[in-house]
Design a protein around this nucleic acid. Sequence first.
DNA 1: CAGTCTTCTCAGCGTCGTCTCAGCGTCTTC
DNA 2: GAAGACGCTGAGACGACGCTGAGAAGACTG
Lengths: 224, 224
Amino acid sequence: MRVLVVEDERRMAAALQRGLQAEGFAVDLAHDGEEGLHAARQGDYDVVVLDIMLPRLSGYNVCKQLRAEENWVPILMLSAKDGEYDMADGLDLGADDYLTKPFSYVVLVARLRALLRRDAGRRPAVLMAGDLTLDPARRKVERDGRSVELTPREFALLEYLMRRRDEVVSKSEILEHVWDTFDTDPNVVEVYVGYLRRKIDAPFGRNALQTVRGAGYRLAGDGG
Amino acid sequence: MRVLVVEDERRMAAALQRGLQAEGFAVDLAHDGEEGLHAARQGDYDVVVLDIMLPRLSGYNVCKQLRAEENWVPILMLSAKDGEYDMADGLDLGADDYLTKPFSYVVLVARLRALLRRDAGRRPAVLMAGDLTLDPARRKVERDGRSVELTPREFALLEYLMRRRDEVVSKSEILEHVWDTFDTDPNVVEVYVGYLRRKIDAPFGRNALQTVRGAGYRLAGDGG
DNA sequence: CAGTCTTCTCAGCGTCGTCTCAGCGTCTTC
DNA sequence: GAAGACGCTGAGACGACGCTGAGAAGACTG
């Protein structure tokens, strides 16, 4: 297992390197943001440990940049600050986990192993179907690079359909997962499918949200 | 997105429910370990939030039990204690993430979304008979790589025949399984077999759907 | 407290799917 | 070879299904 540690404090970096090597990891070091970004792009690491406070380029920006480049290597962020918004920001930027200093090796190693177990990374943060993308963390939907505004219910419906893309999903399944009821008039689903189509299909001349008469709806994986 | 929250402290549970519902999740509550285990087995939740300290059956054991039953629903564990060993133990038992109280909604929601990001990755097998394929989940039928459009009844009939391919299936069996009745005029089966043949056999010059006079029908495993 | 946004219900309408029926061909039996 | 059983098919009636616009009720905002 190859780990990249991006950390500017020499003593901290060296300690991490020693500790992780003792656990059987192969460890590379980078000492500022740009170096870290470069290394992460090159080497295929199984996981990256990324400090937030870095010279030249902050950990935030390294993470953001990597994700923008469709690089889904698992990232564990480290922060000196204990503010919760740091964490939330970090996770929203596409980090997979977050740890505040001071932390113990036991915890760090447990988290690293958990990240590695999760399926060796490469699980895109965003859901995609052709040129249609949905980012659950940021609550953003884009088509053709253009942002699309959705209400909460519309978003939840689209998210559910995209998670099961290419599958035919019945109205009762949709009611159960998106509305949390099962004895509601299924017409509400039809209405919301209509709303979605007017926002994500019609303006683009596409047909991603397909009706399968008598069975339900299917979100075409190729975007229709 | 359906969430099961297993938490015994009433006020905490109610607060979580309100908070998560505000984020658009559908929330069910369980108030002790056994109830939680039961609920997790029944309902198909997208993620489970599991307190460790629970009456009757600890969160540890609920998690352990579920994993032993090959139930891989994503689990986020909550603990009042801040001990590092709790976390390592929890992750080793098969939990997917871990949070210590007190925590903020922002963090909890971010973690939940991170968990949901991973693919649920389930895929029931496609049924095959020669070059004829039927995918129950996607509700797609293909022959020779060309897609074939079927109505719900036609689809159900073909699916039933393909599940029993090479067997001779009587009309009364078909009525019972596809129409869910047994005192209907069997002619309707003949009519629908005719419809199917026009869609999956005739255009391809094949003969997969064979009549066994006096006995029923057989779907040839080699596609006819 | 007015204005906006969101959710949901309802009724109308066009379309599609289902099923019945009657006629006809074919196979089996005597 | 005649008669009846069996299976296939086209036509058409009927109902179910899905879509939509209008609008009411509630939540949120300034």
